[in-house]
């Protein structure tokens, strides 16, 4: 590992300033992803600013929503009674991610900011525009079984690996950020970005900006929800495709729907057109099939991930069925 400085401030402002004034500084919380990347030589920050002393681990209900602190552990959020009652989709999504050991270390903020698991990003001997801009996208003409079918560019076809974020984007969450220029709120759908010409940037956060919490507004989605993750083993694997579905049903009629895919794009992939399609329709398999077709509009596959063009809609159908039956 490279030599680096390590500081552990107890004041939020000090942490933010330490990162804002040093381009080679990084926040660290659970470290489940960053430490791994440092060991593999993918990231080499010269300063680590440990934020674990900041009072950001609370999970509270206030002003018509849940506020989940950035340092709340994944396991703590998934097990929290308020979360399970008010946002069961979020609890399901978190529990679909990683392993129990990792969820006991990983934080809410860190989970959102985990980097892609693209193998070209992870191997410093292979090209990757995200790791080293200008070297080319290794996956574009390479092994791209796990890669994007939406929103990619010729510079990067990687996917975002988080499960939790798929639920948060579906649930219209808002990210609370504090930075050198003050505080701001970012709609969750705007936190992650598409690769475009600058795949090295995963998010819209500015230098020194720290996620302090995420707000999840109360909604009617307390019963008919499902997070379904298709992967190559029963646990501890990244998604081939995942889907988050939250339905508000009136009898068998869909009053409102929230849908998102994971494992298909550089960001958690909200499916608003398909959501609108579902409103007012009966919750039947036929409706779900039609919605899945709507959801897939614009999808495009590469050499090895053609299966996603079928797996993604099928996963959405399965998840809609599970949610309706929940």
């Amino acid at each position: 590992m490279n030599q680096f400085q390590y500081i552990r401030p107890s004041k939020q402002q000090a942490a933010i300033e330490a990162v804002a004034r040093d381009a080679n500084a990084k926040f660290i919380a659970g470290g489940t992803n960053l430490v791994d990347l440092m060991k593999r030589g993918v990231m080499a920050p010269q300063k680590l600013v440990d934020i674990n002393r900041l009072p950001l681990a609370k999970i509270e209900h206030e002003n018509g929503g849940l506020r989940i602190g950035a340092l709340a552990l994944n396991s703590a959020v998934a097990d929290d009674r308020q979360v399970r009652e008010r946002q069961p989709l979020l609890a399901q999504a978190i529990n679909a991610g990683a392993s129990a050991q990792l969820r006991n270390m990983a934080t809410t903020g860190g989970n959102m900011l985990q980097r892609t698991r693209c193998p070209y990003f992870y191997d410093t001997a292979l090209p990757c525009n995200k790791r080293e801009p200008g070297t080319g996208c290794g996956a574009l003409e390479g092994i791209n079984r796990m890669h994007a079918i939406f929103g990619f560019s010729d510079k990067c076809i990687a996917v975002h690996p988080s499960d939790m974020s798929v639920a948060l984007v579906a649930l219209d969450a808002t990210v609370l950020v504090s930075g050198p220029k003050g505080d701001r709120r970012i709609p969750f759908a705007d936190l992650h970005r598409l690769p475009g010409d600058t795949p090295e940037k995963d998010t819209t956060l500015e230098p020194g900006e720290l996620i302090t919490a995420v707000d999840v507004p109360d909604g009617p989605f307390t019963k008919h929800v499902s997070y379904y993750k298709v992967r190559e083993r029963a646990s501890y694997a990244f998604a081939l495709v995942s889907a988050a579905v939250a339905l508000d049903l009136d009898g068998n009629t869909i009053k409102a729907a929230r849908l998102a895919f994971g494992g298909v794009a550089h960001k958690p992939w909200r499916l608003q057109t398909a959501e609108q399609f579902l409103v007012g329709k009966p919750a039947t398999e036929e409706t779900f099939r039609q919605a899945a077709a709507v959801a897939m509009q614009g999808a495009k596959a590469f050499k090895h991930n053609e299966y996603k063009l079928k797996l993604a809609p099928n996963t959405l159908i399965q998840t809609l069925k599970n949610a309706a039956a929940a």
Binding site: R117, P119, Y120, Y122, D123, A125, L126, G138, E141, G142, I143, E232, R233, A234, S235, Y236, A237, F238
Partner: peptide, 21 residues
């Protein structure tokens, strides 16, 4: 990846062995 003759499944996150489940 035969272009490089280099494996892209070199850790236990990418090379899957069964878990308890």
């Amino acid at each position: 990846d035969d272009r490089f003759g280099r494996y892209v499944t070199k850790d236990l996150a990418d090379y899957h062995v069964p878990v308890q489940a």
